[in-house]
């Protein structure tokens, strides 16, 4: 019999669970939302938003069920992981996968896979890399899937582009394969079609 650690946490410490990063905000439809200084999108529906330096995380039902990560203007040395709220060891900081100038679409796909695996995802598969428009410019897209340690299978899709100055814009959507990925996939496609580069 497995013992969910979250219940023990509740039992001994009270509710002490993650709240994500930054202050939560509501994103509303028809309000073109600017992602950093990189691009803006039409959210289509209401989302809960958490914001980090170059990253926004949007979700409706909770980040463990589905989440849309919008990265803008990542530079060499930037990670896809949110800024840690607590100090981490120098070794952990140095070992986190980072974006490097000169990375191509295939390298970015590998960066996403490595970042997911280092975050605890199991059996990460990235596939079907293909050219795709990103805000009217030449970019790429690929699909992904992985498992969480709790046993849920997730599906995902990613689209992005590298700017002329070598910065990376990336949008990553992941959701639990049962129900949640499919529930918002059509909306995500409309959001991707609404990208306007700044």
């Amino acid at each position: 019999m497995s013992t969910p650690p979250w219940l023990w946490a509740l039992l001994s410490l009270g509710a002490a669970m993650l709240t994500g990063c930054g202050d939560p905000l509501m994103v509303k439809p028809d309000e073109h939302d600017e992602i950093g200084e990189g691009y803006r999108v039409d959210p289509q529906i209401e989302w809960s938003r958490q914001q980090d330096r170059k990253l926004q995380i949007w979700t409706v039902d909770g980040p463990q069920l589905e989440q849309l990560r919008l990265y803008a203007g990542l530079e060499a040395g930037d990670s896809l992981l949110p800024t840690p709220r607590r100090s981490i060891s120098k070794q952990a900081w140095e070992q986190r996968p980072t974006y490097h100038k000169g990375m191509r679409a295939h390298d970015v796909m590998e960066l996403v896979a490595t970042t997911l695996a280092q975050s605890g995802a199991i059996d990460v598969v990235v596939e079907r890399l293909q050219p795709a428009e990103f805000g009217g410019q030449s970019g790429f897209r690929f699909d992904l899937r992985f498992k969480a340690d709790i046993g849920v299978t997730y599906r995902g899709l990613a689209t992005g582009m590298v700017t002329q100055t070598g910065r990376l814009h990336l949008i990553l959507y992941t959701g639990a394969k049962p129900h949640y990925f499919d529930a918002y996939e059509a909306i995500i496609q409309r959001i991707l079609s609404s990208i306007i580069l700044l």
């Binding site: 979250w6 509740l10 669970m17 709240t19 039902d61 909770g62 463990q64 069920l65 046993g151």
Partner: peptide, 10 residues
């Protein structure tokens, strides 16, 4: 279990 964790959190 995932939904449960979400409900417990939020």
């Amino acid at each position: 279990e995932t939904v449960l964790q979400t409900i417990l959190t939020y």
